[in-house]
Amino acid sequence: MTTVFRKALGALPRLGVQVLDLGPGAAVVSRRGGYTATKMSGDSWMVGGKRPRTRTTADGWGLHKAAAGDLCARHVADLLANYEVNCVFDVGANKGQYGRQLRELGYRGRIVSFEPVPDALARLRKSAERDPEWRVYPFALGRSESFEDMHLGWKTMNSLLQPSAYGQRRYKRFTDTRKEQVRIRRLDEVMDEALEGIAEPRPYLKMDTQGFDMEVFAGAGRRTADFVGMQSEVAVLQLYEGSPRMNEAIAAYEDAGFAITGMYPVTREKTTGRVVEFDCVMARAAAAPSRQG
């Protein structure tokens, strides 16, 4: 039997309205038309404008990036649920994009965000102010307690490290920088406070610190064993001086007991297609709830 929804969709083209039918209960309606849709996962679609007849390879990478980002976010959301995570350490939180995404995907446990840059910190606090389970710390994390200069003015790419020669060729923003001193603390020194009130903590560590992830990880010391899962941006091509290569970082994480559950491209070279960085999602298999087998 044809539903009222289907009858309505069938009538719209006669009124000059274009319809892109996505299946039961879902459609894109527009007077301009020309939309395309790509199925992502479950009931999720990516809808965009009409593709040109001759599309360059560079244009195509935008779709690849969006698809990888969506798949990574959903993968992490599933991992948090499967491993019964009740506290996410969001290191390099910037304006709170990661925390907001977690909430949108259904995570309701505690979020502990770290961000030392004043402008981003103000936006982060705004994002978290109405969320009683979202805590914000105004400092960076690293291998040791110190105060260091952070390079600013690079939007979401502010870093405690200087840009590499490759990074300077790739991003014009690296040529215009200012420095500001920020406080750095060790992760293992703040974990007890951050986890206070959680009876049986099952934390997850997310790091996005523009080449500084391994320093953050080192600062967790023996407390790395407390994390049931983790996420790190690993570099195939180095954007920052002194940042570890992907194989070096993954080897360190594996030595600490984590195994890869997903790898998602973050950025690519438009001309060559080479991946610059991956989001590497990992979990400690021994920490998986016994119901999973």
Rank of each mutant, 00 (worst) to 15 (best):
T209F: 07
V47W: 06
G262Q: 07
G229T: 10
L161S: 05
S44G: 11
E129A: 11
P203K: 13
W61G: 10
A27Y: 05
Q292M: 15
A128I: 08
G293C: 09
A259W: 15
P265T: 14
A194T: 09
K206L: 06
Q231T: 01
F212M: 04
E148I: 15
D21P: 04
S164N: 04
V236R: 02
T175A: 15
G106L: 09
R169Y: 06
G257A: 08
S232G: 01
K155Y: 10
S243R: 04
E84T: 13
V85Y: 02
P244E: 09
Q181F: 01
V29T: 01
P138F: 09
V4C: 08
S44L: 15
P13K: 06
D59N: 11
D279F: 06
N82A: 11
L237D: 07
L80D: 10
T271I: 08
A77T: 08
R32Y: 14
A26D: 10
L80I: 12
N158A: 13
A252S: 06
V91G: 02
V281K: 00
N86V: 12
S44W: 14
F147C: 06
E241N: 10
H75Y: 05
G48N: 10
I111N: 04
T38S: 10
G273V: 04
G211F: 01
E129G: 03
A120P: 06
S41F: 05
P132W: 05
E145I: 15
R173G: 04
G293T: 05
R74L: 12
R274A: 15
R108E: 13
D255E: 14
I250Y: 01
K39Y: 03
T54F: 13
W61P: 00
V276R: 07
P24H: 04
R143W: 04
T54D: 15
L102M: 13
F278Q: 00
V91R: 03
D21F: 06
W134I: 02
S146G: 01
V281T: 09
F217M: 03
D226Q: 08
N158L: 05
G69N: 11
E241W: 04
D208K: 05
E148C: 12
E115D: 05
D119T: 10
G273H: 03
R169G: 09
G62E: 13
A259S: 15
E115S: 04
D90S: 04
T2G: 07
A77Q: 08
A140S: 11
Y166Q: 07
M246D: 03
F139L: 01
V236C: 14
